[in-house]
Amino acid sequence: MRIRATVAAVSGALALSALAVPAAQADETVSRADVAKIREAAHAGSGKTAFGTRAPEEGQPYALNVSFSDFKIAKAVKVGITNHVATKVTYKLTHGADLDITAADFYTDPYIYKGAFDAPDNMLFGNNYGKCTPASSTTANCTGTIDVYPADGELWNADAGSWKAGAMAIAFNGQDPSAESFDITKVGYADKGGLATTLIQRNSQLTVNASPEPVKKGKTITVTGKLSRANWEDNKYHGYTNQSVKLQFRKKGSDTYSTVKTIKSNSTGELKTTVTASQDGYFRYSFAGTSTTPAVNATGDFVDVQ
């Protein structure tokens, strides 16, 4: 299982920051690896898909009186091969009146995961923990980001498609996870998956070239191009094969493209078709997208018809 936050914490790649709440900052000595250990202990002992309300057992945190709702994230996130991608998320945190969410060692964290909640294939977090602003004595409005670094091996091509969102909260209650006296049963933990869904997509690229230019009216125009998408395993763009792509035309002076025909990309993602020259205008290819790959339009190529 590839959980970026755990790996990054061990390698030092993540810059941890505080939980932004009035008059308090989260203790930066608590790493993502520490948080991951609490999560693993809680899920290992719950015996449920979601961490439920129960008394703490030896080696497990107790169930924290926290719930999450109104989680919002972009419907789709386009991820290329090198650039860092950050996606903002917001959610509501509801907690018991006896819980101090402004404590220095209280943390909340949004995340997204691929696969099952109790045994995900992959998880992605933010560079920083979530930031919460109290709205009442028992509620807070929280924000965070999901940060993706495709060049760091965080994603495999099979990860493209639907992901689910979750959020967790941890109250360390003065317990230092690096100390020999650390008592995990005094740590409170809450975790909830299935709060929202999003698509993590392999970014797409599309080109077009119409020739010859200029061309006589009634002669044949050959329109070529290529549909490609990000490969997260070798950090290159490769042809997206056997996909339906529309050839569209916009006459000079117009803002509207009309579909001329639909063709399919070949075994290397290449596109090629012919049309009859009739008037000055722009040709482009247009791809409607799939659940794993976003829609994309090529920049129109002007043809002068004489």
Rank of each mutant, 00 (worst) to 15 (best):
P150F: 00
T82G: 11
Q201M: 14
L19W: 08
L64D: 01
N173Y: 00
S265Y: 05
Q306V: 14
A165H: 04
G115N: 04
G115K: 01
T139C: 02
K48S: 15
T102S: 15
I101N: 08
P56C: 05
T256Y: 02
T224S: 08
E28N: 12
K72V: 13
T102H: 08
A135C: 08
S69R: 07
V35Q: 15
V10T: 11
V208S: 03
G281D: 09
A44E: 11
S17D: 12
V35M: 15
N128R: 11
G45V: 06
T6C: 11
I221H: 04
K246S: 15
L19S: 06
D234W: 03
R32M: 14
N127M: 10
Q243P: 10
A63P: 12
T138V: 08
D34R: 04
T259G: 00
G12A: 04
K186S: 03
V85W: 01
E180K: 10
K72D: 12
A24V: 07
K92W: 04
Q248M: 09
G126A: 05
F68R: 07
I170D: 02
V35T: 13
T256D: 09
K226C: 02
K192M: 12
A167I: 01
S267R: 13
A36N: 12
K251P: 09
A140W: 00
A171Y: 01
G80M: 06
I73S: 01
A171R: 00
D255K: 11
G96S: 10
I170A: 00
T274H: 09
K164M: 13
A24G: 14
T256P: 01
T259A: 03
A8C: 10
A36F: 10
D159P: 04
H84N: 09
R229K: 15
N242Q: 14
Q60D: 06
Q306K: 12
E213Q: 14
D100P: 03
A20F: 02
F106R: 00
A104P: 12
D304T: 14
T138G: 02
F182V: 08
V85D: 01
V187I: 05
T87Q: 01
P212Q: 07
G253N: 04
D118E: 13
D118A: 12
Q25V: 10
D70G: 09
E40G: 07
N127Q: 10
A140E: 01
T274V: 13
T292I: 04
N127W: 06
Y91C: 04
N203K: 13
M168Y: 10
I170Y: 00
M123Q: 13
D255S: 11
L227E: 03
S228K: 11
D147L: 00
F68L: 07
V223I: 15
K251I: 08
Y240I: 13
V260P: 00
V85N: 02
S291C: 00
A158E: 15
E28M: 13
K72Q: 12
V30R: 06
K264S: 14
L155T: 02
